[in-house]
Simulated scan of single mutants.
Amino acid sequence: MNKITIPPILNIAVEAGQAILEVYHDPAQDFQITAKKDNSPLTAADQRSHDIIMKGLTALHPDIPVLSEEGAEVPYEIRKDWPLYWCVDPLDGTKEFINRNGEFTVNIALMANNEPVMGIIYSPVLNVIYYGSLEEGSFKMIPGASPERIFVSKENSNWTAIGSRSHADPEEEEVLKEFPVKDKISIGSSLKFCIIAEGKAQVYYRKGPTMEWDTAAGQAIAVSAGATMLNASKGKFYYNKPSLLNPGFFCYSG
C-alpha cells in the first residue's frame, strides 16, 4: 500500500470543490435537483464532486474502498470487515448550496478500525481547507498558502454554542443548558466542526439525524485539535454501523 499522506487528498478535495463552484456560479444552471430515496436533495454538483473524488482516491490508493453518500450502497456484510476505508460526502450542505448561502463543503475522512483518523474539509466559497489527523494535529489553510495549526478553545465559561442553520431543533436548547453557554451561532454543513476545532465555539450538539459521512471528517479535525466527540448519551460515537444513520451527538472543547 502506498503511504497515505494528506497533501494529495487536499488536492482532490479542492478539485471537487472547484467543480461544485462551476455549477454554483453557472447562471444557466437550475442545479438539476432530484430527490434521493430519503427525499433529500441531489444536484448535478453532488455527482460531479463524487466522480472526481472517487477517481482521485482510487488512483492514489486502489486498495482502500470508498463509502460515499453518492456511491453505490455497500452491504454491511461486506463493509463490516474493512480495516481501512474512506468516508466521503461529496457535497455536505446541499440545502445551503441550493439556497446559495455558500455554507457547503467537501468532506473526506480516512477511517481505520471504524474510527476517523484523518479528515479534510474544503469550503469552496470561502476557499479554505481544514484538515487534521490524530498523528499530526489540525490545520487551516488557503490552498497554496502555508497551513496554520489550530486548537480548540480553553475557555471555561462564556461558551459559544454552534448549531445548524437548516436543521435547528428547540430541544437542543434544553440540552445545552448543562454547558456554560452564553452565546449561540448558526452555520451550515460540517463547518460547525471546523469552528469548534479553531476555538471560535466550544460546543456543538446535534439531536436530529445525520449520516456517518456528515460527521466523519469533522470529527477527525475537531478531535485532532483537542475536542471530544460523544453520542447523546455521553458514550462512544460509533462508525460503520449496520445502519449508517447517526444518533445525536456532542462535540465540545476538551
Rank of each mutant, 00 (worst) to 15 (best):
M1P: 11
N2D: 11
N2R: 10
K3T: 14
K3H: 09
T5F: 02
I6S: 08
I9Q: 05
N11G: 08
V14H: 01
G17P: 04
G17K: 02
A19H: 04
A19F: 00
L21K: 12
L21I: 13
E22L: 05
E22S: 10
V23D: 14
Y24L: 12
H25T: 15
D30C: 05
Q32Y: 05
I33Y: 08
A35F: 01
K37M: 02
D38Y: 00
D38E: 08
N39K: 12
N39W: 02
S40P: 07
S40T: 15
L42N: 10
A44E: 14
A45L: 07
D46F: 00
D46S: 09
D46E: 09
Q47C: 08
D51Y: 02
M54D: 14
K55S: 03
G56E: 06
T58G: 01
T58A: 04
A59I: 02
H61R: 06
D63N: 05
D63T: 02
V66F: 00
V66W: 00
S68A: 15
E69G: 07
E70L: 11
Y76D: 10
Y76H: 15
I78T: 15
R79W: 01
R79A: 03
K80S: 05
P83V: 01
L84E: 06
L84M: 03
Y85G: 05
Y85M: 09
L91A: 08
L91D: 05
D92T: 11
T94H: 01
T94Y: 06
T94K: 01
K95S: 13
E96H: 04
E96T: 02
F97P: 01
G102K: 03
E103N: 09
T105N: 08
N107F: 04
N107M: 11
M111E: 02
P116H: 09
G119S: 06
S123N: 10
P124G: 05
N127D: 14
I129C: 10
Y131W: 08
Y131R: 09
Y131M: 10
S133K: 07
L134I: 09
E136V: 03
F139L: 05
S146V: 03
P147N: 04
R149C: 07
V152R: 13
S153G: 07
K154N: 15
N156M: 10
N158C: 08
T160F: 01
I162A: 12
I162N: 06
G163S: 14
S164A: 14
S166W: 00
S166H: 07
H167W: 07
A168R: 11
P170N: 15
E174D: 14
E174R: 12
V175I: 13
L176W: 00
L176T: 03
F179W: 03
V181T: 06
D183F: 06
D183R: 13
D183G: 08
K184Y: 02
I185T: 15
S186W: 01
S186G: 07
S189N: 09
I196R: 07
G199T: 10
K200E: 14
Y205S: 13
R206V: 14
R206D: 12
G208S: 12
T210P: 03
W213Y: 11
D214I: 02
A217L: 10
Q219P: 07
I221G: 12
S224K: 05
A227Q: 06
L230D: 11
L230E: 15
N231C: 06
A232E: 15
K234P: 03
G235Q: 05
K236P: 03
K236W: 07
Y239A: 11
L244T: 12
G248K: 11
G248V: 12
F250K: 15
C251W: 06
S253W: 03
